[in-house]
Amino acid sequence: HNLTITQGKLFFHYNPKLCLSEIHKMEEVSGTKGRQERNDIALKTNGDQASCENELLKFSYIRTSFDKILLRWEPYWPPDFRDLLGFMLFYKEAPYQNVTEFDGQDACGSNSWTVVDIDPPLRSNDPKSQNHPGWLMRGLKPWTQYAIFVKTLVTFSDERRTYGAKSDIIYVQTDATNPSVPLDPISVSNSSSQIILKWKPPSDPNGNITHYLVFWERQAEDSELFELDYCLKGLKLPSRTWSPPFESEDSQKHNQSEYEDSAGECCSCPKTDSQILKELEESSFRKTFEDYLHNVVFVPRKTSSGTGAEDPRPSRKRRSLGDVGNVTVAVPTVAAFPNTSSTSVPTSPEEHRPFEKVVNKESLVISGLRHFTGYRIELQACNQDTPEERCSVAAYVSARTMPEAKADDIVGPVTHEIFENNVVHLMWQEPKEPNGLIVLYEVSYRRYGDEELHLCVSRKHFALERGCRLRGLSPGNYSVRIRATSLAGNGSWTEPTYFYVTDYLDVPSNIA
């Protein structure tokens, strides 16, 4: 807008934040220059609390790290170098490059900038070799853009010569660093050979998330399962459950009422301010606690030095998902009996873990797994792929695949051998790939016309006998059925096997 004052003059007093240069501009645009008398524009009460600059400061050096910015700028000295009290560095987070010096300023003089007072450097006698002032900004957020400017702080001049310097606002972004852990990993099994893994992005990506790394490792069953005799009275049979499938998407929606109208769909109840505040506090606490764990609990591995020492970490090797089922080394339970199943799973520490690289999504279907087997899954978020990966501390989750139908069934015939004193040795093959492992066998036998009897055969007993022995049988026709019990439950009964026990007292003698 054009402003013209045809008559009258300007009068400025007691404006401590208004620089004289701005008042002189007002004289020019209003056409009143030359009308004012000496005392109409006070030299001592206008701009006496402001830094009124008329020179431009330029930054000469900028260096960044993930949490620091090192700045240096060209030296500046007023005509009387004693008038320079120091520099004021202003900075704040700036997602967009549209910041002005006066953003967030209120009537009390406060604003949204963080201000650092910096002492002037030592003055050199040689004007050509003056030290460049600077400042190291610490405690910054990774991968965050900051708006920065600097200006001088000078003393009051009796001659009211307006001098000083100020830089333009520059924008500097800190470097990326390792992201925080992925949030809320959930693993479920939808079949006997697959596990579905879902997660949420890290709360602090500290860069642009480029991919996720998912490692999985087959877990050995508890050692007590191999040692305890679950045929003993009072000892509860062990059981394991597989990871249940995901709930429906509708039930997972946030901010939804727990109660549904019987007449149909209901609208979600909005969260109160107290609920939102509580969630923010919980989120802040979780982030602080995660940072504490990362800094205190997890110790970084030592990389190899120039002395030739090897990095103890196993090298990563990509495998196809079809090879995942046989990740671990199978060892027989008892070496003397080769027909026992290889369900003991000690994992070799030198073995390469299978892994998958996930790009542009937060889910993965891990296939080719062994049925009813526990897996430990390790999830890392990465925001750099080359020249070397920059990934987060791992988040861990466990899951067990679903049982395989008929995996616990005894394959092959049940054979028998009759000894003296009416002892019958029953023999059968253990299931080759049971659900988890076989903890015991149930032997059901009966003599024709009598009630059915049951015998429990422990895992250890089966390994020693290759089956079991029935003792003290009365003469007669017998039928026997056997079924295995694994961590997933009972298998199917075998087809009945028949044998006849004679009275050993009636056996004919070869003595003449």
Results as ranks from 00 to 15, higher is better:
S509I: 15
P244Q: 14
N339K: 09
A407V: 07
Y441N: 01
R400W: 06
S274A: 15
S305P: 10
F372M: 06
D408K: 01
E404A: 03
S344L: 07
P332W: 15
E389R: 11
Y478S: 00
P354G: 12
R390V: 03
Y448A: 08
A394P: 08
W242Y: 06
V424P: 03
E495W: 05
D229M: 11
G476I: 00
K302P: 13
Y478P: 01
A336L: 12
F337S: 09
T303N: 15
E279H: 04
F298V: 05
E290R: 10
R370S: 14
V397R: 15
V507I: 11
S283M: 05
T333D: 12
I418K: 13
E282V: 09
K302V: 08
S304L: 06
S363M: 02
D408F: 01
G472W: 05
S283L: 07
R390K: 15
E451Q: 15
E279A: 08
T328F: 15
E442Q: 05
A335I: 14
S304Y: 08
G322F: 04
F246M: 15
F355V: 09
K271E: 13
V414T: 05
T497Q: 10
E433P: 03
V359E: 04
H254K: 13
T401P: 09
I276T: 06
E249I: 05
S262P: 12
E389W: 03
G374V: 11
L235N: 11
V334G: 11
T333Q: 03
Y445N: 02
S315N: 14
V397K: 15
N435D: 01
V414K: 01
H416L: 11
V443G: 01
V345P: 10
V457Q: 14
I377T: 03
L237V: 14
G374M: 11
L453E: 06
N208P: 14
V329Q: 08
F499C: 12
I410T: 05
I438E: 02
D273K: 09
R313Y: 11
P338F: 11
Y212L: 02
D503S: 11
A463T: 13
N339W: 10
E388N: 12
L470T: 02
R370V: 15
L321I: 05
G234P: 05
D385H: 14
T497G: 08
F298P: 07
K460C: 14
P475K: 09
E290Y: 03
I418N: 13
V329T: 05
H371M: 02
S458K: 13
S284Y: 03
V329K: 08
D261S: 08
T347P: 07
R316A: 10
P434N: 08
D385I: 08
P434K: 04
Q219K: 10
F372Y: 14
H425N: 12
T485K: 10
L455S: 08
G368F: 13
F298G: 11
V297W: 09
D450Y: 13
D450Q: 12
G322T: 08
P245R: 07
C382L: 00
F285V: 12
A405K: 13
T347L: 12
N421Q: 15
I377H: 06
N208C: 12
Q429C: 12
E247V: 13
I482T: 01
L369F: 09
R218A: 07
N208S: 11
C391K: 06
N435K: 00
F337L: 12
S257A: 10
N339E: 09
S479N: 02
R319N: 03
R218T: 13
V443A: 07
K236L: 13
R459Y: 09
L379P: 01
V424M: 03
R376D: 15
P354A: 05
E389Y: 11
R218S: 12
E404S: 06
S239A: 10
T241G: 08
A263F: 08
L213R: 15
H425M: 12
E442W: 14
C269E: 08
G322E: 04
S392M: 01
V501F: 12
N360P: 09
E227H: 10
S486A: 07
E388K: 07
K317H: 14
P508L: 09
K271F: 13
E282R: 13
R319A: 14
H425T: 09
S274C: 15
V345H: 06
N510Q: 06
E221T: 03
Y478G: 00
Y504C: 10
Q252S: 12
L232Q: 04
S342T: 06
D409V: 04
D222M: 06
L437A: 10
Y441G: 00
Y445F: 03
S223T: 09
E417G: 12
G207I: 02
Q219P: 08
A488P: 02
E452V: 08
K233M: 14
E465T: 10
R240I: 10
S262H: 12
F285G: 03
W428V: 00
E362I: 12
P387L: 14
C456T: 02
L364S: 05
W242L: 14
R481Y: 11
K233S: 10
G306I: 10
S474V: 12
P300A: 08
L453S: 09
G374Q: 13
D222Y: 13
S304N: 13
E378A: 10
V439P: 07
Y498D: 05
P245V: 11
G325A: 12
Y375W: 15
N360T: 11
I438H: 02
S320M: 06
S284P: 05
R471C: 12
S304D: 12
P431C: 09
V439Y: 14
S486L: 01
C266Q: 10
K278N: 08
F419W: 15
K278P: 13
P434S: 08
R447H: 15
E495A: 10
L464H: 12
R313G: 03
Q275V: 11
Y448W: 15
I276S: 13
R319M: 06
Q275P: 06
G322N: 13
H211A: 10
P475L: 05
L440D: 07
R459L: 07
A395K: 15
E417N: 06
V296G: 07
T485M: 11
E258D: 08
V331L: 13
V480M: 10
C456F: 02
D222P: 07
S398L: 04
R313N: 10
E260W: 08
G491V: 00
K460S: 10
L470P: 00
D503L: 12
E224I: 07
V297Y: 09
V393I: 04
G264Y: 14
N477K: 10
E265F: 10
E417P: 02
V424Y: 07
G325E: 04
R447C: 05
R286I: 04
Y445I: 01
D229V: 06
F462Y: 09
L369R: 02
E249V: 09
T494Q: 02
S257L: 09
W493E: 01
D323N: 07
H425S: 12
R286V: 09
A309Y: 11
S341R: 08
K406P: 12
E495C: 04
R483E: 00
R483K: 09
S315C: 10
E452L: 09
H425P: 01
V296L: 05
T307E: 15
F355A: 08
V296W: 13
I418H: 04
F215N: 10
M427A: 11
E247D: 06
R469A: 07
S320T: 11
Y498L: 03
T343E: 07
V501M: 13
S203K: 15
F285T: 03
S392E: 01
T347K: 09
P475I: 10
E281T: 06
S251H: 12
G264C: 02
S243K: 03
